[in-house]
């Protein structure tokens, strides 16, 4: 139970649902962070995005807490935030699409263990839509039909993206391995 939840005035109905929210938060946080980090390549941003999605979920918990899978709502919210911010970055800062993640060298930073696998760097080389499909498939364990619904694309398109993503990732990862890393 959140320590401060009792110290502040919670909206009516929140208290009885708090245990479920805390369970969801603890259970899904790192999985969701893994997905978004694989997509954005930015650990700090990822932490912010996931936290933001959970804050929004808690603000609406009297409704979302009754869903069959509140985690799906949080995941969608986090992904929407990530994509919106990604677009903003591209527009306002002209961030090159395929650059490596900022401020996190391959051997340094809290996410160094993740970066050493070169998976994130390889993912960054994929177009955004394909990267998202690959991450949802491999890290969110979503079936193709669900990915298609979430990304508003045909199932055949998702399959094609996954095929292309797999092929390109295999090349990139092999390139890293052959590079002596």
């Amino acid at each position: 139970m959140g320590m401060d939840a009792t110290a502040i005035a919670l909206p009516e109905g929140h208290v009885s649902l708090e245990w479920d929210f805390a369970t969801l938060y603890q259970a899904r946080f790192s999985d969701l962070a893994a997905q978004l980090y694989a997509f954005t390549g930015d650990a700090l941003e990822t932490q912010d995005l996931v936290q933001e999605a959970f804050i929004r979920a808690w603000q609406r918990w009297d409704r979302i807490g009754r869903y069959d899978d509140p985690g799906a709502w949080v995941r969608r919210a986090a992904w929407n935030l990530a994509i919106t911010r990604h677009k903003r970055l591209k527009i306002f800062r002209r961030v090159p699409e395929h650059d490596p993640p900022p401020a996190s060298g391959p051997e340094s930073g809290p996410e160094a263990g993740l970066n050493r696998m070169d998976l994130v760097a390889s993912l960054r080389k994929l177009p955004e839509q394909i990267r998202r499909a690959v991450v949802l498939h491999y890290l969110a364990d979503m079936p193709i039909a669900d990915i298609a619904a979430e990304m508003r694309a045909a199932e055949g398109t998702i399959k094609s993206w996954l095929r292309r993503g797999r092929a390109e990732l295999a090349i990139h990862l092999a390139g890293y391995r052959d590079g002596g890393r």
Binding site: G2, A5, I8, S30, D31, Q51, I55, P110
Partner: peptide, 20 residues
């Protein structure tokens, strides 16, 4: 990657969420 991510990204206390 998922296994390592679980060690890297840890949920802070829910109190942070409630307060925000």
């Amino acid at each position: 990657f998922r296994s390592r991510a679980a060690q890297t990204f840890c949920a802070t206390g829910t109190d942070t969420i409630y307060h925000a």
